[in-house]
Design a protein around this nucleic acid. Structure first.
Lengths: 213, 213, 213, 213
DNA sequence: GATGAATGAGTGTTCATTCAT
DNA sequence: TATGAATGAACACTCATTCAT
């Protein structure tokens, strides 16, 4: 929701501001991010900033919107009709696109992480009220479809499973990349496979029927 | 590491300060937590605070130490010798104790969550240097033992599985409780069972051997 | 090194701030000087100060720089080529310019004195690193030249003599002026002559050769 | 002027406090010296301090008094009747005793220096009001006597010469020792001789009569 | 539309001193 | 006599935002 003035800016200047903001908000969570530093890094006047954006939160919303837009762009074409896909393929693709996004846009990914980290819960709620239902609900829907199709076991707790998936997908950007060879996309994708594998079949060595009581 | 003066305080006053601190640090991550607000809430002079604690970080460390102490108290007695236990029972107990802790000490649990949220990574590192090895490593060890005993499949990626467990256990306190009927311990424990179930056997409806390529 | 914002200020306001700073730092050595008092005396907001200067040290450096600039302006034209001059004439001119500077800029002179007082040694070093070699070394060079030319006795300890001169020149501004009729420049200059006289011929009534053992 | 309670203290405790105070005040000038640090270093209660001393200034006065007492103890016996001595011998002895004092009591010497540095002028005046006339006046008297006896030239400005001597003697402790091989007393004493030499005969290579106009 | 000076409340921290016990 | 908890003003510095030009 930047003001028109921002969009009327010459492309180059707009970009400069955008990147200064990216730098600041990817390093600091919302409250600690400093508009002072942003305007200094961007080389614009303090007053100018407030002509482009309502306030600090307005800038933040703008960045978050960018995250959403860009993240969607990383979805593969076949995901346009997600429910034609096999459930696990869909999850795999979501995870893979998440990894690719984080790899190509590490700063945006950091911002996303701060936002999700619920140290920012109040900021999050204020900003996300219009985006309600995002997040866990999507995974629940996917799993429900999978269950209907018979891909997913009928006896699991869907909420828990969706919670599972949500937690994992949120962790993909930062901790995951830090930990698992962040430079090499091929390796990261193998780790995604490992994840899916565990998700599908669990980690127990025993079959379900012989163990389940 | 509060100063002696803090421990010499009359129980009641110490408690007041402790709770003011709890309130502040459970709502705000370290950097945003305000000593000003703490002293105002506690009804003490600014100078007094600094007679009890070295500085802001000192207070924080104290709270974190409380978390560790209390969390340990929630471990069941049979977990004193953890490696005599079945791997999944151990994980189950860790999760259950985590839930019980979070239910009884929701503010401490929030603080723990902030600390783990890696928006606070630098604060975390500074404070945790002496507690190295905590975290993911523990889960990896558990899984390794489980693999040796034959409880855990030999073909999974241990790092990923440990990462899995770590993410889940961190999520137990806050999101988990918000989502799953936080008032009712029995229900929460059932959700833990659901989690373990999924963790063990996965969510796929198909057996491993027929699916694996 | 004030920021541009300081130099962009209307002359009058800049002057007000400058004088408030002068007052504060001429009365108190660096560590004890209070930015709070400066801004109050200058009638500006605390935040404004930090828009003009990086920090307290930045203001201090600015004042010190003023001292250097102004002090140079008090050197007489013939001192542009100092080593064409007779050694004692040079010293005399240095002392005289020091006195004139202190008379016209008593507050700057006080600041200079604090800076030299080596109660401030650490502050001094931090600020003066770029101005290395100032101070005693200059006097040593002057004396060396004088010795080469035969104006200065060959048997004196140059380091001690330079130390002598340095101490005296530092003392010119404050103690000296307090003591010797500070209002009357002519009288002060006579005292400088007295000083040079003693410096040249000593205070003993006896000749060197009959006394020296 | 410490209170009786201080003198009633067991020797050892009194000494501990004295040394803690020495450490603090030799490092920091009066205003920056911290009673907090002193009591902590001395291991006594905050309240106790104020039972031994009126306030911070009282402690300071005590230390300054120590300086005077100790400095007198460094005067050689023949200086008990100073005016029987040759004027230059007297000055030499004063300087030598100053150097010995600074070498044996470096912390007291530092305190003296802070006190003299006239960054502390207000503190100085408050504390020294009862000691008026110390300092320069002594040197003036010595020089007057020397002039009467014919040791000192009759045509010099006594005030300036006394000022000279005063500046030099104040510089002996710190700058002097830093600069001139502070460890080796013999060397330091040679430097004192160099000083006296210059003081007596000046640094000019020419005789007085041929140069004087 | 662009500017950047102005603001005052906020931050964590230190201080000398008092006083009830 | 010894204690040490209590205090509140002071410190340097940062902040998001406003507004006259």
């Amino acid at each position: 929701m930047p003001k028109d003035t921002f969009y009327n800016l010459p492309e180059e200047k707009r970009q400069t501001i955008y990147e200064a903001a990216l730098d600041e908000f990817s390093i600091h969570p919302f409250k600690q991010a400093s508009i002072n530093r942003v305007v200094e890094a961007a080389g614009i006047a303090k007053g100018s900033f407030y002509q482009y954006f309502q306030d600090k939160k307005d800038l933040y919303k703008f960045l978050v919107e960018e995250i959403f837009q860009k993240k969607i762009a990383y979805l593969t074409p076949e995901m346009q009709n997600p429910f034609n896909m096999d459930c696990f393929s869909l999850i795999r693709e979501l995870f893979r696109s998440g990894v690719r996004f984080a790899k190509d846009n590490p700063k945006l990914a950091k911002i996303a992480q701060h936002l999700m980290s619920n140290s920012e819960k109040d900021t999050y709620l204020e900003i996300m009220e219009e985006k309600k239902g995002e997040g866990i609900q999507i995974y629940k829907m996917i799993l429900e479809k999978g269950m209907e199709k018979g891909d997913v076991r009928g006896d699991i707790n869907l909420d828990i499973a969706a919670f599972f998936l949500f937690q994992l997908s949120n962790s993909l950007s930062d901790g995951f990349m830090d930990m698992f060879h962040q430079g090499d996309e091929a390796q990261l994708m193998e780790r995604v496979e490992d994840m899916i594998e565990i998700l599908k079949y669990g980690i127990s060595n025993n079959r379900l029927e012989s163990e389940n009581e």
